[in-house]
Each structure stands twice: as structure tokens, then as C-alpha cells.
């Protein structure tokens, strides 16, 4: 509920209110935001503009850079797609079914938010390595997981899962059961009800979860580098290439790759905001 004072005539920045502290809290918040986030980020933008268009293009179109961006984006896309399928199944099972240990499983879905990425990285690497619990049986079947792009996908599935589950789950909880009953009494099979009645309502949430998982995956570093093998042109991700260029004191190249990653991240953020606005307009929740 907002304060109910009438807005003054003409242009106004802030509605009058009897609550004190606007100047202090707004001023502090904006200053802190500028110092910690906005000025440093604009430093990256200014620095890449300083490079000049020709130099920026030369650094950005370096084959190793293109390959790293392709690996990052491609693996993040595959991982987000896997998470959409299994994330929706996990959310469905948690919302609709009652079984022992449901609360524990529900709580553990948030593990990737709480577990440091480096810890997840070494655990996944040793689990999926050719001599690990999962890697060994897979290797016996001729499937190499760790130290290939497949390993990157595994790590990104880990970090992206809660984004899909936690976006879809609240929307599923609010589904009106009467719609399903109506579909069933009209003769729709269960599968038809799921596909034609429930899925369209869940689509905005699923797409948002996909975009969130994708955005996180493109920028992910800690959980990936241990399992990836980091072979240039094959399993080297863009964030790692930034680190490598910085270690070579090649700040210009790191800046160019960073600027491109930032542009991709902002494009995804814009897309996510559009999806959430669409979802709110259609279904009243985001």
C-alpha cells in the first residue's frame, strides 16, 4: 500500500509523505550503488570504447575468443534446456505428490545457491572423472564426461537447476484445479490436459527459468573450470579466457571479451524482464 497523499500539480520527483528519511536513505543507496556497481561497470565500457572500433573488432574476432564464447553459450543453452525438462518434473513432483522426505528434497534444491562454486566444481570433477563413481561406469560404456564440453554441461546443469525449479514451482502451486477438472469432464485425456491446458499457463515461468539459467550459465566460472579440462577451442569457456588474458597482462583483450559478455548478459536481462512483464500481464504473477 502506498502513501495516499495527492501528487502535486506539474512535474514531481517524489510524492510528499509524512515519513522521514527519504533524502538520507535514497542518497545513501544511490551513492553506494554508483560507487560499487555503476562506476566500475562504466569503467569497463569506457575502457573498451577507448580501444577504438578497429582494435576492439580485432580483439573480439580472435578465433580463440569466438570459440570460447561459442563454448560458453552453447553449453549454457544445452544445460538450460536439460534443466527445463527435469526442473519442471522436479517442481511437479514437489508440488503435486506427497512422499516421505519431500521437505528435505525441496530444501536441497537450493543447494547450488548455497554451495560455493569451487566446492561444487571439485566435487563434480572427481565424481565424473574417468575414475569417479559416475565417470567410471560411463567410461566403461565409452562415454567421457569430465574434461570435455559434456563436463561443462554437467556443471551448468548443477548451477542452473534451482533457477528453473524456483521460478516454475510457485506458479504451479497457484494452478486452479477446477480448470483441470473441467478439461477432464469434457473428455480430455490427462496428457491432453497437461499439454493444452496446464503447459500454456506455465510457459512464461518456464521461459523465465530457462533465461535465468542460461544467463547464469554463460557467466559461470568456479564450478566449470575443474571439470572442463580447459582445452582451447574445445572446452575453454569465455570467463576463463578473461582470466587467462589478465594473467598475461593483456588487459585490452580481457576488456574486449568482458564487454561482449556484459552485452550478452544485458540482452538476456532485458529478455527476462520482458518475459516477467508478459507473465504478470497474463497471469498476475511473475
Amino acid at each position: 500500500m502506498a502513501t495516499t497523499h495527492a501528487a502535486p500539480a506539474g512535474w514531481w520527483f517524489r510524492r510528499p509523505s509524512i515519513i522521514p528519511g527519504f533524502g538520507l536513505t535514497f542518497g545513501f543507496a544511490v551513492t553506494y550503488l554508483a560507487l560499487i556497481v555503476l562506476i566500475p561497470l562504466s569503467g569497463l565500457v569506457i575502457r573498451s570504447a577507448d580501444l577504438g572500433l578497429a582494435e576492439f573488432w580485432r580483439l573480439a574476432s580472435d578465433p580463440r575468443t569466438i570459440a570460447a564464447l561459442r563454448v560458453s553459450f552453447g553449453t549454457a543453452f544445452v544445460a538450460a534446456a536439460i534443466n527445463v525438462v527435469f526442473g519442471v518434473v522436479v517442481a511437479w513432483v514437489l508440488v503435486r505428490y506427497r512422499f516421505p522426505g519431500r521437505r528435505l528434497v525441496d530444501a536441497l534444491v537450493d543447494l547450488p545457491f548455497a554451495l560455493p562454486t569451487a566446492v561444487a566444481g571439485i566435487a563434480l570433477a572427481s565424481l565424473y572423472a574417468p575414475n569417479g563413481w559416475i565417470g567410471a561406469p560411463a567410461a566403461a560404456l565409452g562415454l567421457k564426461i569430465a574434461f570435455t564440453p559434456l563436463g561443462i554441461v554437467i556443471a551448468l546443469v548443477f548451477v542452473g537447476l534451482p533457477f528453473v525449479v524456483r521460478t516454475v514451482q510457485p506458479v504451479m502451486e497457484e494452478i486452479d484445479r477446477e480448470v483441470e477438472e473441467a478439461a477432464a469432464t469434457l473428455g480430455a485425456s490427462r496428457l491432453a490436459t497437461l499439454a493444452r491446458v496446464l503447459l500454456p499457463g506455465l510457459a512464461p515461468a518456464i521461459l523465465t527459468g530457462f533465461a535465468l539459467a542460461l544467463a547464469r550459465g554463460v557467466g559461470e566460472y568456479g564450478s566449470v573450470i575443474f571439470i572442463a579440462g580447459n582445452i582451447p577451442y574445445v572446452s575453454e569457456i569465455a570467463p576463463l579466457l578473461v582470466v587467462i588474458r589478465l594473467e598475461e597482462f593483456n588487459t585490452a583483450a580481457a576488456t574486449a571479451i568482458g564487454a561482449m559478455m556484459l552485452a550478452i548478459a544485458f540482452a538476456l536481462l532485458f529478455l527476462i524482464n520482458l518475459l516477467q512483464a508478459w507473465s504478470r500481464r497474463r497471469y498476475g504473477h511473475g
Binding site: 568456479g222 570467463p239 568482458g258 536481462l269
Partner: peptide
């Protein structure tokens, strides 16, 4: 900051 890669 949530949409920026930690490395960035």
C-alpha cells in the same frame, strides 16, 4: 550484479 559474471 546478479546478471554480471563473477569474473567480470
Amino acid at each position: 550484479p546478479f546478471s554480471v559474471s563473477p569474473v567480470i
